[in-house]
Design a protein around this nucleic acid. Sequence first.
RNA 1: GGCGGCAUAGCCAAGUGGUAAGGCAGCGGUCUGCAAAACCGCUAUUCCUCGGUUCAAAUCCGAGUGCCGCCUCCA
Length: 473
Amino acid sequence: MLKIYNTLTQKKEDFTPLTPGEVKIYNCGPTVYGFFHIGNARNFIVVDIIRRYLAFKGFKVTLVQNITDVDDKIIKRAREENTTPQVISETYTKAYFEDLAALSVKKPEVNPKATEHIKEMQELISLLIEKEAAYASEGDVYLDVGKVKDYGKLSHKNIEELQAGARIEVNENKHSPLDFVLWKKDKNEGIFWDSPWGPGRPGWHTECCVMSGKYLQHPFDIHSGGIDLVFPHHENEIAQVETATGKKLANYWVHNGHLNIHGEKMSKSLNNFLLVRDILKQYSANVLRFFLLSAHYRSPLDFTEENVANAVNGFTELVSTLYRIAGILEKPLTAGGASDSNLKEKEKKMEEKFSASMDDDFNTAAALASLFEYANDIKKTIKNKDWSLNSENRGTLQTAGEKITALFLVLGFEINVEKVPAEINALASEREKTRITKDWVKSDELRKLLEEKGWAVEDTPKGQLLIKQKYSL
RNA sequence: GGCGGCAUAGCCAAGUGGUAAGGCAGCGGUCUGCAAAACCGCUAUUCCUCGGUUCAAAUCCGAGUGCCGCCUCCA
């Protein structure tokens, strides 16, 4: 039984979808005012894992991830670059899709844009006004938080405390400092729409309400996002939708922890942002993903050179097992020898542990451990003197490789074990000859040359094995 | 000030009542012409501190300390 930690109840709960066999997920996507950084990537990858695992379990998954293409930050950026908000949002929407693809994140089923849902947003706002839960004030429209039932239930705050802790609001259009804006009056920012309350643009929060309702219907199963979105963004989504429709917004609220850099939160002022585009020049998508999955998604995770190097080594270890298997499978079959049923049992155990781990609130760190244990079982088996490559063992070994590859894919690792190129094979055979004539100098030269070309060569009782190196994973 | 979270070996990290997974790094060994490869073994009597509950606690309760997040845009 899959369990998911729900921010709303602060408990791990059994996951039961509203429609058997189907899961509907809404994840808060990017505001397209710049390239996204690895902290954003953590969220996208966490959601990618969730949807991949749910699909692996047999659910039909629909993921909606919005694109916020009208926003203060976009307008600001446009001013700075002396261009229009539209140019900025188009540029970075394109970049967003490119970066997602580069990270091997599966494309969401729907990527709705805020600017394409203005009419629906206005309808929602009108409905809230009709219900006297919202009010127009000097061209702005605000939600009256005092009219919202259970405001604060997601972030576990209460209105009195919020009011006590609220900073001084300079905005005199609001009745209460906690009220939040649904519609912003146009201030000549180059992007606006006509509305019953005058020209303006939507405030934050409203777009997600409209788009999740349009593509998934309220209520839907899982709403996700970064931990920092709990308040006020998700709280305010709940406030709008549940007040307007009387329906629950979503059943499970999933929030991932932040990615820090050297123990600090990433921020522009500290200038410690790492853009996905830049980091991918240094580390592969797989390595980056392995690093992110090495901790539970709700824990904070620290990006340091040491920690990422750790991930590089660990991931290499796993992948090299696949190369080892592929290399062995290339060898000629031997007749006879004992069959190995032990490995099949280990395989079953590994699959059980993998699923049990993932079922426990997507515990990827524990799931990876099951793969490591199994990889060790395989290597141990191959190494065993009594083990031979007879046809039965060959089949078991091949299946073992396929299992790992399949579970890799569930975690989003897209590994294609590369066939040893002809050039490399030629060098390896040449080296084999030098070894027969015991020309160790030449032999070591060839080994070095192979390493320079990205292939480690290993001498085993069964002949040379070629293993691809980490820097080219 | 309010709310929430976290504290497990040199590092990363799982584990929420039954006697400390896994990875990285390190050390010793086997194999090997050699090997940074592979394999075998070792590396936390103990889970921030102090109390309490229990036959039994890293796990539950209380107090304390430290770190972090949110309360304002933020994945």
